[in-house]
Structure formats: structure tokens, C-alpha cells
Design a protein around this nucleic acid. Structure first.
Lengths: 202, 202
DNA sequence: GCGTTACGAGTCTGACCCGTATCGTATTGC
DNA sequence: GCAATACGATACGGGTCAGACTCGTAACGC
């Protein structure tokens, strides 16, 4: 997708090879600046170059512009998929819900909120976002299906609505800080249990 | 909060009074530009003035800067609180959930996503956001409490978690377009029913 | 060593914008 | 009519930034 992919095959390189350290420094600088509070569009190539200790040309040699750089930088944040143990449906759901918005990179929580706007205005970034979350949705869908097969969950539930039910509360809390009084730590467990049991008198 | 409040008392005005049409045109232009896809920080006073058919000085005569103008402009969007009928707890919840992210102004859904980032970086805007949603949370809390009193809802549920459960799915759908396959129209009903009944086999 | 390419640093042009000031004009109270 | 204040328009100095370019230098294959 970016120029960097061409590094893989590496047919032959006449001159001095590109510095891998520069690649890394540029990406890191981008994420650092975002995590420090810069918004996406306030981010300038000049600032990134300065922060990375790199000439502007070094950036333009690798990426076409800010958008392409950002696309590569944000890819770093998606982290790895959580792997449900497969024993208890409830525990698996707690694990998956707890993993929402939680990434390997500690900067991710700071950066994620500012993506919310971008996702709804740029269709490329919307696609990137969907590409990241759809495998996670799939994972949760499979756990729910397993629950139905095992007879733990009812067969007539709407899987998509149920996933929204499990994901929504965690997401608005992590991304929007919707309710400052809500404890994020114990939220996954409480959400899963509430969804499982319902709130109605039976 | 802004200079405009001083218009209220109006002690005495020597010269030509300020044009109310200009006030309106500036606010409208601001909201229009935001709704058309401009982000908050890409929004410039010059663009607003041009769109409103107004000189820049006319804007600076009223507001100290872009932030003050935005604060006033966004206040227009919050709309009125939904009024639950008070008959059926389920119907009231469906009404409240359906009202999430739904404002009188048709531009609101387009503008809301780009506020997500601002809310998490500027504490002033975070407060403004909390001030807007906390009465709505209170409304929902009262409906839930009524449900408990009436014996429709269990007494041992966590109100705050339940509210997150009801609000989250709707919010991520309206603001983040979390799952494009999910029908926004019928979502409130389905969310409320799922939360009421739970998904577990009983 | 030589051609080639990359490097950090810096320069340059052309946008765009802010916030202020200044036009000539319009609208108010007196 | 006259002072006062508003209006839209425009010009201004100061600032930031995009991208393309230029340095002198560094690292590679041959």
C-alpha cells in the first residue's frame, strides 16, 4: 500500500540503502506527537521531521504525503487479536470486551479519540478502521455462536445487536470517557454479566 | 459566557446597533461548514466570514476568537430533552435510546463525530459535553429507577452500567458507524429488548 | 575509487491563515 | 445635521506549512 512494501522483494540496490532507523524514527515521532495531544491535521511533516531528527526529504522519499504516512503509522497501533481460551463463554466474552480499545502500544488510548472524526470523513480511513475491527467482531461472533451451540445462549438472539451491546459500553468509555464515574477496570465483567442476565425481573 | 450576553441588558446604544442577521449568519455558516466536512481546526474565521457574507471584523467584534465562536455555535446543537411518556418503562427507554445523538438540527449527526477528539483533549469542551449529556443520563436513570420501583426491573442491577449498556450501542453506531450493517432505525428497540431480556438461556 | 543512492540540514516559493487596521457606507439617538 | 457605532470589503504584517530543491556527507556495489 505504501512505498515501503517494495523493500520486501529488494531486486538490487545500487546506492546507499534506506535507513531502517529513519523509518522507525519517523513512525515513532508521528505516534509520539499524536499521543502528546496533537490532532491529526495539526500534525505537520516539518514537526515530524524535527522530532524524528530527520530531514523532510527523507520523509517525502518514503511517503507521498501526510495521509500515507499516517496510514502506515496507525497500522502500528492495531495490535494483536486477543485469543479466547474457549472454555467458558462468559470468560471469553469478558476477555474480548476487555480487549476493546486496548492495544499493545501504550500511546493508543491517547490517539484513538482523535481518529473518531477522521473515520467519518475520510472513506480510506473508514475502510482502514473497518479492516481492523471486523476480525475482532468476527472473533466475538464466533464465541457467541459457540455459546448458542453449547446451549448457554439463547438461539433467537440477534448476533449483531448483541455484539453492539457488548462493544458499545466499553468503546464509549474508552474513547469518549462517556461517564467519568464508571470504573473502566471492572467494566468488561459487569457489562458481560448484565448482557447475559438481562435487567428484567424474571 | 460570550460577548453576546451583554446584548441582553442593553443599557444604551449610541450608534448603529449590531445586526441580528449577522449574528445568525455567522453561527449558521459555522455549523454549515462543519456539517460539510470541515474539521474544527481546519475551520478558519476567514472561511466563516466569507460563507456568512460578513467581514472578518464583524466576527471579531462579537467573539474573542474561534473557540468562543465555536462554543456558542455548538450550543445551538444540543436540542431539547426527550420527554418520556411515563407509561411503559420499555417504551420510555426506547424513546431515550432513540434520542441519543439525535438533535433538532439535521446537521448535528455530521458534526458530532468531529467533537469526539476535542472532548478528550480540551477540558473546557469536555465539561461542556458532560453538561449536555448529564441531564440526559439523569433522565434515563430516573426511568430505570421507576422500573425498579414498579417491579419491572430487578433491584440488584447497577444503574450506571445499565445506562452504558443502553447508550453505548446507539452512540458507537451514530458517531462511529461502528457496524455499517446494523440498521440504525430499529436499533433502539432491539437494544432495549436485548438488555431487558438478556441473552442467556433461562 | 567511482557511480549511485541516501542522509540531515537547510533554503525557497507559494499557499493559507490570524488578528488588526482602514476604507467608504449605513443606521441609530439626539 | 452630527457624533457614534455598525456594516462589508480589503490591505497589512506576521506566522506556519507544503513540497521541491540544494548543499556537503555517508554508505553501498562493483
Amino acid at each position: 500500500m505504501s512505498d515501503m512494501t517494495s523493500t520486501a522483494d529488494a531486486p538490487r540496490s545500487p546506492g546507499r540503502p534506506r535507513s531502517i532507523r529513519a523509518d522507525e524514527a519517523i513512525i515513532e515521532a508521528t505516534l509520539d506527537l499524536l499521543a502528546e495531544g496533537s490532532t491529526i491535521e495539526a500534525l505537520s511533516i516539518e514537526a515530524i521531521a524535527a522530532r524524528a531528527g530527520v530531514g523532510k526529504a527523507t520523509i517525502y522519499r518514503r511517503w507521498a504525503g501526510k495521509d500515507a504516512l499516517l496510514l502506515d503509522a496507525l497500522r502500528r497501533l492495531k495490535g494483536v487479536l486477543a485469543q479466547p481460551a474457549g472454555h467458558s463463554v462468559r470468560d471469553d466474552l469478558v476477555l474480548l470486551v476487555g480487549a476493546i480499545g486496548k492495544n499493545v502500544d501504550p500511546r493508543a488510548p491517547k490517539i484513538m479519540p482523535c481518529l473518531a472524526s477522521a473515520v467519518n470523513r475520510d472513506s480510506d480511513q473508514f475502510q482502514l478502521y473497518q479492516n481492523i475491527i471486523s476480525p475482532r467482531r468476527q472473533l466475538m461472533r464466533e464465541v457467541l455462536r459457540r455459546g448458542i451451540d453449547e446451549g448457554v445462549l439463547r438461539g433467537d438472539i440477534d448476533l449483531e445487536v448483541t455484539m453492539a451491546l457488548l462493544t458499545g459500553p466499553m468503546l464509549i468509555q474508552r474513547v469518549l470517557q462517556w461517564n467519568p464515574d464508571l470504573d473502566e477496570q471492572t467494566l468488561p465483567e459487569r457489562v458481560v454479566d448484565a448482557v447475559l442476565q438481562g435487567i428484567q425481573v424474571r
